[in-house]
Design a protein around this nucleic acid. Structure first.
Lengths: 377, 377
DNA sequence: GGAGTTTGTACGATGGCCGAACAAAGGGGT
DNA sequence: ACCCCTTTGTTCGGCCATCGTACAAACTCC
């Protein structure tokens, strides 16, 4: 994702590094002048000029009209080019497909979704639906697409292969990235876990740089963000918090263990315990007891993660933001007791809603571009 | 620790990077020629020559006598200089102090330890003992000392401050690094957690590049190594596995929670349950039942960590290697059931013995030097 | 309209890497 | 002994990216 090169370095390495450095400054919310970038980065104004020239030629940066006022020669403000290369995001969920296009500034320029149940369907049908939807949003946005990423509800190994998805039994070892790529005209398509991408979306929309992002659903997954980067683990399977043990003698889990978090705070258990028909019914009348129990279980699992990782923030997403304050309070109470080293852990609900993973997928393409603009040429 | 710079880059950055790159090749077990380094790194032979020249001038690398045999001009083999700058390691334990000097090649050149009980003593006495012992090993080794590091049985915040140590009640917010530094003639002294440094020692003596290293004692700590680097967490407090919950309704822990790992697999519990007087008695006649219980608890906690971090290996150190195969088997059995995503987790006992943290401290100085040889000048 | 200020560009200098040519040091065959 | 071949290590010119400095551009304020 980011350039943390291991091999030999030359002058071109320096150029590449500095291009990314300048672009990071330009990517801020306010337009900045070349001189300001130079002051902030430590580079010379001359060097910055040269770098910016290259970024403008690549279509990543635009020069806005000079504003009036202030003393001295007015600066020519620089911004990320909203008409530059954009990212395509696709989400293949259990019972829906969605796609969106995000431009360089992070704005969603087109978004569509359709119901599409993949529980008992074979992969090709879902892939075709997703590809068709993606083509629609690409046409609607009318931007050059630099790449794509797809969010998947399962374990994604290195290489973009969906190894298995608990709720998509027929999707085993499917190379979703490649498959979608060929269907979209040889576009490079990365694949990622849904919770991971939602965690990145949260990060990029102003979330904390160190956090555990929990995505509640039928399964419970987590995306771990450390120092502003997603932590994927040695095999890309990090964040499987759903099968952390919260009660060694608890009910059996389909994974073979006992007392996993998923059996205590997963959607199915929640619905069974409350008698609600679906999530909407549950959100309409949140039942105190079961939610408090689920919150305590979440707290136990998260306390372990926090003691281990020394992470200062937790963001609860997926179905949890619809569970009301009871769940949140229960989590906070449990953490207050069980987290020893770090007095104040910030626990919040995600504000992105159900589109987190989708936006994360599209934005990850853009972020790749921004973090290494000299990489593609 | 390693250079993962965030600021502006220039040619000197390239030089620095390549110096470290070459040094990493030279640091291998076998001596290598300049040409071999060039082939392996992708740099030119000329460039490697220039870099090696600088490394020799800095005293980090030596040229060995050319061997006979083979076709072509014989290579002049390069090695790390065993007479070059060395690292000083100090360990301040609960009831002992130790110090050692490790040269550039990783060999221990001098080592001493003395009993010194700090349970009820104030810091200055222990610091003086440590400084005196350190001076002795430095004199014995007779090498230039590039820096020092000290291993401490507690939470070490950023900046080398021992924030608190459960078994050293009077050591609260002690700037051990600075204090030792002034006592050793303004030598820069880093401070680190004992389990963290033991984990690094294990890594540098050939251990896996991704692992959780558990250090058992009165407390239970862990050092987490990811991609060959120690993970310290946002506040430097990562690895506090001792208070991960293994049984929410278990016995109360002094931390205020219930059923922490420490209450199930800490030394005090082990001794109480078995009636053994001390660790030696326990190791002489390992009791099956309590050790199996402790192993299962360790397995539950480690399974959580592995599911979360996707780590392929666990190394058990501290008192655990003296507990025999029962504990190890219990841990392995528990992991086999509870680790879902990763079929084969390698669980082993540490082979470094009780000196792991001490060697890790000394070696960390050397590793700092090797990973950024251009940094100090 | 001129002084002052800030921005952006132009140009030579420096430093580091690359490529190719060259000297050095040995083995092997006749 | 002598010459050829192979491999290693060094030398030298070229290239590229940065830096420092000087200079042109553009605007405000008096």
């Amino acid at each position: 994702m980011t350039t943390s090169e291991r091999g030999a370095a030359g002058q071109h390495t320096v150029r590449r590094h500095n291009l990314a450095l300048v672009l990071r400054e330009v990517a801020g919310p306010e337009p900045v002048s070349r001189a300001a970038v130079a002051a902030r980065t430590g580079l010379t104004r001359g060097t910055v000029s040269s770098l910016v020239e290259e970024l403008i030629a690549a279509g990543l940066v635009t020069e806005l009209a000079a504003p009036r006022g202030g003393t001295g020669r007015p600066a020519s403000p620089l911004r990320l080019d909203p008409t530059g290369p954009a990212g395509l995001g696709v989400e293949i969920g259990v019972d829906a497909v969605a796609a969106c296009v995000v431009d360089l500034t992070g704005s969603v320029r087109a978004r569509r979704s359709v119901p599409s149940d993949h529980r008992d369907a074979a992969p090709p049908a879902g892939l075709a639906t997703a590809a068709a939807l993606a083509a629609e949003v690409v046409a609607e946005a009318g931007l050059e697409i630099a790449g794509a990423a797809v969010a998947l509800p399962g374990v994604v190994g290195r290489g973009g292969v969906l190894e298995r998805a608990p709720n998509l039994p027929r999707w085993v070892d499917v190379a979703v990235g490649e498959e979608l790529g060929t269907r979209l005209g040889e576009l490079p398509v990365l694949a990622g876990n849904e919770a991971d991408l939602a965690a990145l979306a949260e990060l990029w929309s102003g979330g904390p740089a160190d956090a555990v992002y929990v995505s509640g659903g039928i399964g419970v997954g987590a995306g771990i963000v450390l120092s502003g980067r997603l932590f994927r683990g040695a095999g890309g399977r990090a964040g499987e918090i759903g099968h952390v043990v919260v009660d060694p003698d608890g009910p059996p889990c389909h994974c073979g263990g006992r007392g996993c978090l998923e059996t205590a705070a997963g959607l199915e258990t929640l619905l069974r315990e409350t008698g609600a028909a679906d999530l909407n019914a549950l959100a309409a009348a949140p039942p105190i007891g079961p939610l408090a129990r689920a919150g305590r279980a979440l707290g136990v699992a998260l306390a372990g993660a926090i003691n281990l990782l020394d992470v200062p923030a937790v963001v609860l997403g997926g179905i949890y933001p619809r569970c009301g304050p009871v769940l949140l309070d229960a989590v906070r109470a449990e953490l207050a007791v069980r987290v020893l080293s770090r007095p104040a852990v910030q626990v919040t609900y995600s504000t992105l809603g159900p589109d987190g993973a989708l936006r994360g997928a599209a934005t990850s393409v853009v972020q790749d571009l921004l973090s290494d603009p000299g990489g593609r040429r």
